[in-house]
């Protein structure tokens, strides 16, 4: 009863700290990707933590207007990279749509499911990015791209297994309510 009451209350409230989390995590993760998780250090197995964060939003953020945060997260990454503006914006928006479907089939609170979704999501985002490179005439070859996206996805998946419970813990600690279905009110 208490849970149902809390869930109903969470639904009635607007998202909490949404833009602070989006802008803060977006800029800090973009800097982390540019300065720490670089291909020069990790080779083909460079973790893509930014996509992990976008997937987290797609899976767990409040269902009210969740599309815009995914878009904003992508645009922040676009602004801090050399590629075409809007590429990651479109990709993370599509990731949000795809994850909504996947969420119905796989429970995202189970670690194996998180691993599967993180690997698949990261692969698709990076493969989509390569597709945009191809459109711009800068592709590296489809077979090379598949190999590289696979390597990135394999390197990124395990991070999600540790990071998602950590983010759940942090959001719980700062007092953000969790609604029915496992959605956080962010």
């Amino acid at each position: 009863m208490a849970y149902a009451h809390r869930a109903a209350w969470a639904r009635s409230q607007g998202p909490v700290c949404r833009w602070r989390i989006i802008v803060g995590s977006g800029i800090s993760l973009a800097m982390l990707q540019a300065m720490v998780f670089t291909p020069e250090r990790f080779g083909d197995f460079t973790p893509d933590l930014y996509s992990i964060m976008a997937l987290y939003f797609a899976l767990f953020a409040s269902r009210h207007g969740r599309y815009v945060p995914s878009l904003a997260l992508g645009l922040i990454r676009d602004f801090l990279s050399m590629g075409l503006i809007g590429t990651y914006g479109v990709l993370y928006s599509l990731l949000h749509k795809a994850s909504e479907k996947a969420r119905g089939k796989l429970d995202p609170d189970r670690l194996p499911n998180i691993l599967i979704m993180a690997v698949a999501g990261t692969f698709l985002v990076n493969f989509g990015y390569h597709a945009m490179l191809v459109v711009a005439g800068d592709g590296i070859g489809w077979s090379n791209a598949i190999t590289r996206c696979g390597c990135i996805a394999i390197a990124t998946g395990p991070f999600a297994v540790f990071l998602y419970p950590l983010i759940h813990f942090v959001l719980g600690r700062i007092g953000i309510p969790r609604a029915a279905g496992g959605y956080w009110n962010i």
Binding site: G65, Y67, V68, L71, D78, F79, L80, S81, M82, L84, I85, G86, T87, G89, V90, S93, L94, K97, M132, A136
Partner: peptide
């Protein structure tokens, strides 16, 4: 906010902005 409209706008921007080089200048400022 509608996904289809926003996606269309973004795709249009993806095509138009490179010609105007707006994005590159914004990135430089960032």
């Amino acid at each position: 906010r509608h996904p289809l409209v926003a996606t269309c706008i973004l795709l249009a921007l993806t095509i138009v902005l490179p010609y105007l080089r707006v994005g590159e200048r914004l990135k430089l400022l960032t």
